[in-house]
Design a protein around this nucleic acid. Structure first.
Ligand SMILES: [Mn+2]
Ligand SMILES: [Mn+2]
Ligand SMILES: [Mn+2]
Ligand SMILES: [Mn+2]
Lengths: 224, 224
DNA sequence: TACAAAATTTAGACTGCTCTAAAAATTTGT
DNA sequence: ACAAATTTTTAGAGCAGTCTAAATTTTGTA
């Protein structure tokens, strides 16, 4: 029942969870995990055997892995903690959105159900983290976000900026430097066929060009 | 210069720091550390060698250990983090003072100078933790507390309750159950010679008896 | 379909931290 | 002063998590 799950095991489970949700809900390969965690493939294989032993994953050698229900619950709890702590760091301690990820990587492993419940309440039971990612509730339920990258819409018009695909410090800082933050209104005024760049007005400000690379990492909803 | 100090090593340094301050600033023995951390003496010897190697302690086999300046700075930083997090848990998340120690034992190892500086500011740069223990400042300076256990005063009169010696959950809960909290005024009305118990009025409430054991774990200052 | 390339696992080793059992050093008591 | 008791260290081992090198399995393509 009450198997102890180490910090390292939590990180593997979170990696498998994240990787399996990148596209569909598919199986995750050893090399994918190895790349994601910066460990060697042999190390990953070793850990996969231990996680399977603990019934946290379904593992068939050479065939990739999937989380069991127990593994999924564990992973999603880590994600919940990570995102709640990020909200704390930004909302309460005034960190910038590009500064919080590394600290949250540590805080996500603090083990106390009471703590996380009280933190959630203290923060006003937020539904999204500072990057627009949904925060799973205490039961592991997650708002499915139907947002799509800006460049996939292929139409002019009004959008709301609700999240990012890319979470790197440099990308987040770039968005800050062009004056873009979660919740802003984007008006796409032109789309250039040849390179998929677009001319965009942020809120009521001057228009500027977004490269396809930028537009592909900005998640938007069509503005009602 | 920038030697990495593991969570385990931090706990050893904190233990040595705490034990060396119990009475005077004396050397700490292998068995003291072993008792304090619930590790075997052989395990401690092993770790002492590694800490000495990293210049965090002065270690002479069979003669006990002392922190180096670097070791002391590391230990005191952990203590600072522990106590700041306890303030956070009590002041912001409404935990009771007997519920926070175990969680702070985890949080004290989160590694981010920026985080601790912002947390300190967020909490209003507190000078004491929920148990009355002083919080070292960012430079490792600590208010020396001149408080003395109630039973050592041996005189009637008015005192202020400023801290506890014993930090166990059961003792803290006992104090709560008799309605005693940090900052309360204690009026010692009687002292019984034969068992050193005393009759005490808390603030303006009814008087009650404190056993010597209770009185020996309550730190007070004479009320001005 | 066969075979080369890529992915994955196995084998063997190392570090950090822990243990037990035994040896050595120190302290204590008479 | 010295034997007994206590403390501390040494020796040898195990587990978790990591690595490199080699073997094995799967995949993609000629
Ligand atoms: Mn993050
Ligand atoms: Mn995030
Ligand atoms: Mn504490
Ligand atoms: Mn405390």
């Amino acid at each position: 029942m009450c198997v102890i799950i180490s910090l390292t095991e939590e990180n593997y489970l979170k990696a498998i969870y994240t990787l399996s949700h990148l596209i569909d809900e598919s199986e995750v390969s050893t090399n994918q995990i190895s790349d994601h965690l910066n460990n060697k493939a042999a190390t990953v294989t070793d850990m996969l055997k231990r996680l399977a032993e603990k019934k946290l994953i379904h593992y068939i050698p050479y065939q990739g892995v999937k989380l069991t229900e127990k593994g999924r619950q564990t992973a999603i709890k880590v994600v919940r903690k990570h995102r709640l702590w990020e909200v704390f760091l930004v909302d309460k301690l005034q960190f910038k959105w590009d500064e919080v990820h590394e600290i949250a990587e540590q805080l996500e492993h603090i083990n106390s159900d009471e703590l996380i419940q009280r933190l959630d309440k203290f923060l006003g039971k937020p539904k999204f983290d500072p990057h627009g990612d949904p925060i799973p509730d205490a039961n592991g339920q997650l708002n499915i976000v139907k947002a799509i990258p800006l460049n996939q819409h292929k139409i002019k018009g009004m959008f709301t900026f609700v999240g990012v695909c890319e979470h790197s410090k440099t990308f987040l800082q770039h968005l800050t430097s062009i004056g873009l933050k979660i919740g802003d209104t984007l008006k796409v005024e032109e789309i250039n066929e040849f390179d998929n760049s677009c001319k965009v007005k942020i809120n009521k400000n001057n228009s500027q060009f977004f490269s396809n690379k930028v537009a592909s990492n900005i998640l938007v909803e069509i503005k009602k």
